Computed example of a mutant assay.
Amino acid sequence: MTSTAPPVLLVHGLWLHASSWQPWVERLEREGYAASAAGWPGDSPTVEATRADPRAVAGHGIDDVVEHHRRLVAALPEPPILVGHSFGGLVVQKLLGLGVGAAGVAIDPAPIKGVKPVPLSSLRSSWPVLRNPANRNRAVSLTREQFRYAFGNALSAAESDALHERWTIPSPGRPLFQAATANLSRTSEAAVDTARSPRGPLLVIAGGRDHTVPAVSARATFRLYDRSSALTELRELPDRGHSLTIDHGWPEVADLVVSWLATQGLAPRSTPAEQA
């Protein structure tokens, strides 16, 4: 073996299937990483199969998802770089706070405990779940219209509808209820050890047109790390919505992630044998 291939684990959020990361997997592998994306507990291998069995994903909370990914990390040959979107970004932060992972990237991350701004657009995006307390124990799907508001507002209607058809799945309602009540609970599963030092570096990426996790929420997340001596950075993409990891502009986000990893010394390295 003449080169190292740092592992990267990609973590999806609510309503998107793990296979939505496939273009990222291919891009990262071209860069020399060993990339993979895994579903949440109960997810089936395909979008269609997950849609056909929504009860399998119902009822899982944040800690269930974190523990599921911690087991995946433990099976890898070395600590991976963790990249998560939305609730996947919250999971990445939880794992880093537990000392799991070499580095983390949280893209439009769902708010952790301590994030105080609750923009009206966030409430509207979450309303399909939060409007019914029984959804805590159910799996909920988004309609095309709900998806366009929450994810595809920065896109044409045609592109938003195409992404909805291709990638969306039912997701558990419990994580949204946990995040919504995090600041009212002393033992919230949305709590993250933001003061942990040392830990791997963390990059928070905010979309300036995001309705689900507006940039103000991502900035508030970033500020919670001021007690940690570990590196935490924030980047904002002003014209991007919550669909930024799956829409036509995803390469721009991937470029940012790959570039940032290189600045952290986390790019794939050639061995003397390869250099020769």
Rank of each mutant, 00 (worst) to 15 (best):
A5W: 01
P6N: 02
H17P: 04
A18T: 07
Q22F: 07
V25D: 01
V25T: 05
R30Y: 02
E31K: 05
S36F: 06
P41L: 06
G42I: 08
D43L: 02
T46Y: 02
E48C: 03
R51N: 01
P54E: 08
V57T: 14
A58I: 11
A58Q: 07
G59V: 06
G59H: 05
H60W: 11
D64Q: 10
L72G: 03
A74W: 08
A75P: 06
I81G: 00
L82R: 04
V83N: 00
V83R: 05
S86A: 13
G89H: 02
V91C: 10
Q93A: 06
Q93C: 10
L95P: 01
G101Q: 04
I107C: 05
P109E: 01
K113M: 14
K113L: 10
G114S: 08
P117D: 11
S122G: 09
S122T: 15
P128N: 00
R131I: 07
P133Q: 11
N137A: 12
N137M: 14
R138F: 09
R138W: 09
F147H: 14
A150N: 05
A154P: 09
H164Y: 02
T168Y: 03
I169D: 00
A179T: 09
A190D: 01
S197Q: 03
G200T: 00
G200S: 00
L203W: 02
L203T: 00
I205D: 02
A206W: 00
A206S: 04
G208P: 11
S217G: 04
R227Q: 13
A230F: 12
T232F: 04
T232H: 06
R235A: 14
E236I: 11
G241P: 11
H242C: 11
H242I: 13
W250N: 03
W250F: 14
P251H: 06
A254W: 00
W260V: 09
A262V: 14
A262S: 15
T263E: 12
A276Q: 15
